[in-house]
Design a protein around this nucleic acid. Structure first.
Lengths: 154, 154
DNA sequence: CTATGAAACTTTAAGCTTGAAATAATTTCC
DNA sequence: GGAAATTATTTCAAGCTTAAAGTTTCATAG
């Protein structure tokens, strides 16, 4: 998925775009993952879950998390399990529906996330430093329209 | 890694760009993965390795593959193991240096890859259909310059 | 009520991924 | 030549990831 086109012809530009998109995101992702590990002894998936919860102080259902993060249900189960065992997150039983539980950041989780998020944002600024703010806005605009054309398709 | 910025301020545009980039590539990647599984009973990592080998008929070392695909050494070992056991790839011992072996596509691997690659390219064309060819070229250009500013940094 | 189906979640098996440790072969340097 | 460092690869443990199957709970229609 990271190799170049294997032949010339129509559709080539989109394929090339896809490959560059993928290489760029893999490169950045690898760097962020490494720093999260080294500086905060955590992982990208844990960070993702905490970021989602940080935006929803009232909590999120497992299925909310899975939908929002674009990963499978079973996946979220494991990550939340680990965050719970680390004391960063809680699963609160609900009165209404006993199948579900509200997942929330703990005090410690919230404090911990705030620190990591600050570093994370500055890392992204650094890693994308070669992209001007203006270019960043334009690129983001293109990617937004692309995404909205896609989400919830089938 | 898929959530939005948690506050407003400078560096916001780059963070937003990064999040959109990541969401876009995850969405496309998930769709391609699913189709590869359903239509060809294979996976993205296997496809990646085969794509790299297809471009190098003379073969590649394990470390070449790992460097090119931006994944760890140990990772490639497992994927190549599976491809070998499926008869799609061979490890040829070398006379010169007995630590290394040349990894090559087999006849079958090559035939198999060509078919998958054709479908893959048309899928990407479809999935990026909302991006005009012109826009694709511009976006790819920006991503290229970004990448080259980055590769082999440290 | 109560069965039937749907919904929310967990479990499982297989595979991907990493970083670190272990192996083996080669190169370098006295 | 032989010790020491380097290089190429594999192995390992832990964690991430998915799809599919299983469990529990809820909703609904008789």
């Amino acid at each position: 998925m990271v190799a170049g086109p294997t032949s010339a012809g129509p559709g080539k530009d989109r394929l090339r775009l896809w490959i560059r998109l993928l290489r760029a995101s893999r490169t950045i992702e690898a760097e962020l993952r490494e720093r999260l590990k080294k500086e905060f002894d955590t992982t990208l998936p844990r960070f993702d879950v905490m970021a989602a919860l940080y935006r929803s102080p009232e909590g999120m259902l497992m299925s909310d998390l899975s939908r929002f993060l674009l990963v499978s249900n079973g996946n979220v189960t494991g990550i939340v399990d680990r965050l719970v065992s680390e004391g960063l997150v809680t699963r609160a039983r609900r009165n209404g529906d006993r199948r579900t539980s509200m997942v929330r950041l703990t005090e410690e989780g919230s404090r911990s996330f705030a620190a990591i998020a600050a570093a994370h944002e500055s890392w992204v600024g650094e890693l994308l430093g070669n992209v001007s703010e203006d270019e960043a806005r334009r690129l983001a605009g293109m990617l937004k329209s692309f995404r909205s054309n896609w989400e919830g398709r089938e």
